[in-house]
Design a protein around this nucleic acid. Structure first.
Lengths: 107, 107
DNA sequence: TTCGTGGATCGTCGATAGGCGATGTAATGG
DNA sequence: CCATTACATCGCCTATCGACGATCCACGAA
């Protein structure tokens, strides 16, 4: 049943670009609703950023809600579950750190 | 510092293909050392499978050790850590499940 | 040494992704 | 009403991916 694999591969593909990772980090760091601020932050053309947003939205990892003249993007954390499960399955033995969200790394 | 993002993107790209996911599942399910059995299992040409293995090896997610006439491939679970961390960071709020690789959720 | 086997590499093809500027389209502000 | 703002979409181009057959290479066996 390669169904799941295809879906997981699509999720991974959505993450397979630095610009999209940066966009996701921005959405994570921004509580509310940012629009074209993303364009300035990633340093790419507006059309390019719009395309990346479209890809992320198509993969289901973000949502875009039109709010007046702007569009409000937000993370959809649930969408990552299949990929996270897959990666978790590959890491049974030495994944010593379990669940601790230690933020103290990268001092 | 887009260093990390580039690395994470490479990891994600390694997972961004159903054939490679299948190969990883095979390596997970196989304790020892399989060689060309992979070719038969994924249903692609030998050269194509070899290329996928090369991509996985280049991303550092598997290791290939030449053992006589064959090559022994094995998972490298540690390699997924940066990607797993990134995905984990995107899932703070409603990700009630912490670390469990329990497959019994999905209500 | 010569063979046969298991992988790796090469060359090539069509398909897709990534980037940009230009243009299209709603909704707001004057 | 028209102008502006904020995105989305459209071509167009280059670069990379994915797949294959053909070929090369290294080792063990005869």
């Amino acid at each position: 049943m390669p169904d799941m694999d295809i879906h997981i591969a699509e999720l991974a593909k959505a993450l397979a670009h630095p610009a999209r990772l940066r966009i996701l980090r921005l959405l994570l760091a921004t509580p509310g609703c940012i629009g074209g601020d993303i364009v300035g932050a990633v340093g790419l053309a507006q059309s390019t950023v719009s395309e990346h947003l479209r890809i992320l939205k198509a993969a289901g990892v973000i949502t875009g809600e039109i709010s007046g003249p702007r569009t409000c993007y937000a993370l959809n954390p649930d969408a990552f579950a299949p990929l996270a499960t897959f990666i978790g399955a590959l890491t049974p033995p030495e994944g010593a750190n379990c669940c601790l969200p230690d933020d103290k790394e990268t001092p």
